[in-house]
Write a protein that binds this DNA or RNA. Structure first.
Lengths: 128, 128
DNA sequence: GTGATAATGATAATGATTATCATTCTGACT
DNA sequence: AGTCAGAATGATAATCATTATCATTATCAC
């Protein structure tokens, strides 16, 4: 029932073009630059639909949702509280421990979100 | 410079009275019940101030912030996507791995947020 | 090619949170 | 006690991401 329309294809193309973590406004802006402007409500709906179909990944930050390409292996995120930059990491041992925790609590795990906050190496330098 | 005023003391008392994870509205409602009604803006500021002073803990969920007592040992949260219930868990091995990840990325870690989403044991039963 | 179903886009509405601003409180110091 | 500066308060407006509404248009199955 979910359709992959021209607009959603355009959104998907934008997101697949880079490793960025996009928010809705950034996607809308990129689409305008691209001469395929799409209404902001449609961008929101398109992002939600694409994420539901697994064609893109979503991460929920404190204030907003961001979306990224889905054709990467699973990872979590390091977020610099200074510059806002988002790095990715992968630590399967953590996932295993999460599954253990869930089973200890008779909890059927559906997903997780792990964010590490701190100062990235670039901002550490510039601080002084 | 941050002051622990009567209003903030009242907010703190409400939160310390239970193991709940409170949002601002719930705190405001409890204060009204308590015959110490406080303006909603003041509740928000009070919660932020108390969290900054370490007198309460805050957790950032998708849509809103929630606050809980600070006099417990560190833990993370299991969130039932059906009933919204929040359980707590403690797994120091995960924290250690997080520190390891951070150091691998030359990242000075300041904090983290780990949420596990799924179905709690109660909702599993009632679903059939 | 005709319905049924879904998508679009402009705009209004929502909901949590923050900003504004006039007023009041607090604590330190005369 | 009196004064002054810095905070806090509370009512309300503003903000910002997101969702709802609704009339219109596109899409797909038959």
């Amino acid at each position: 029932m979910q359709k992959l329309t021209a607009q959603r294809q355009a959104i998907l193309d934008v997101i697949n073009r880079s490793d960025k973590h996009w928010d809705a406004d950034e996607v809308a802006y990129a689409l305008k630059e691209n001469d395929t402007p799409i209404g902001i409500a449609t961008v929101y709906r398109g992002l939600a639909a694409l994420a539901e179909q697994g064609l893109i990944e979503s991460i929920q930050l404190a204030d907003k949702k961001r979306y990224e390409r889905a054709d990467k292996k699973h990872h979590d995120h390091l977020i610099c509280t200074d510059c806002g930059d988002i790095e990715e990491f992968c630590k399967p041992e953590i996932e295993k421990l999460q599954d253990l925790v869930a089973s200890e609590h008779d909890f059927t795990i559906q997903g997780h979100q792990l964010l590490l906050f701190g100062i990235c190496i670039r901002c550490k330098g510039k601080g002084i």
